[in-house]
């Protein structure tokens, strides 16, 4: 209870500071106040474009995120089983990890256009995270427990359920927070650069063009809430499916 009160007081402090700063600057087109942002958010809630933008960005980002998980899983399994494969794809992963997201966005724009940009970008940004987390989990499987599985003739299903899953889950948990926020951040960045139609990125881009900071803050706020909720759902899912770790 005390912890909750503390958190609420901290949030209230920052909101008051925001309000004061906005009134001191007194240029709502550059720095909208909290109340202006809230008003803008409520007015946006009743527009069709708001919901379409949210829906499109969220669906595309989640699609890229889940595809990255599936590909990360299979690539990690191949790398675990075939060391040549691991060495073979290492340079690609190194490039994906090192090249600035903006460069990747421009390359994707050049090659594939802006229609599915946020799917590609969230996939490319999150894929290495999942790949390395799952590979680390596989490489850290308890060898003694694997011998137990061998002696007691565990089926493939049992090995996955009781050995590999338990080994992978802690590594996945560690990387999931970063992966969730990266997916949404990079998706929206891509949408802004690519000016993708009917997306949060496009709305933020228009906020810049029309000097509408209240709209910019509103969309950013909604994005934070979505990314946070998505992360919580994924963590719950991992806790439920990840077994007793």
């Amino acid at each position: 209870m005390k912890k909750k009160l503390n958190s609420i007081s901290i949030i209230i402090f920052w909101l008051i500071l925001w309000e004061i700063t906005a009134s001191v600057i007194n240029k709502p087109y550059i720095f909208a106040s909290f109340t202006d942002t809230l008003a803008m958010l409520f007015s946006l809630l009743s527009t069709k474009v708001f919901w379409i933008s949210i829906f499109k960005t969220v669906i595309f980002t989640i699609f890229g995120f889940l595809s990255a998980f599936i590909f990360g899983l299979f690539f990690a399994i191949f790398s675990y089983k075939i060391s040549f494969f691991k060495s073979f794809i290492n340079p690609v992963l190194f490039i994906l990890k090192s090249v600035p997201v903006a460069s990747i966005i421009v390359i994707i724009l050049l090659w594939f256009g802006s229609k599915y940009l946020s799917i590609y970008i969230s996939f490319i940004v999150v894929f290495p995270q999942f790949y390395y987390a799952i590979l680390s989990g596989l490489q850290n499987v308890n060898k003694e427990i694997l011998e137990v599985a061998e002696i007691f003739r565990f089926s493939f299903h049992k090995k996955v359920l009781y050995i590999y899953r338990l080994s992978i889950t802690p590594f996945l948990k560690n990387s999931i927070s970063t992966a969730c926020s990266l997916a949404f951040k990079s998706s929206v960045t891509a949408e802004i650069i690519g000016n993708t139609i009917n997306t949060i990125g496009e709305q933020i881009y228009y906020s810049k063009i029309y000097l509408n900071s209240a709209s910019l803050f509103s969309y950013s706020f909604v994005l934070i809430i979505i990314a946070y909720s998505f992360e919580k759902i994924i963590i719950q899912l991992i806790n439920k499916l990840g077994g007793k770790v």
């Binding site: 003694e144 427990i145 137990v148 002696i151 007691f152 009781y162």
Partner: peptide, 13 residues
């Protein structure tokens, strides 16, 4: 075979 190992090797959790 089935075996009881010296270090038991059970699923601890």
């Amino acid at each position: 075979f089935s075996c009881s190992f010296q270090q038991t090797r059970l699923f601890e959790k």
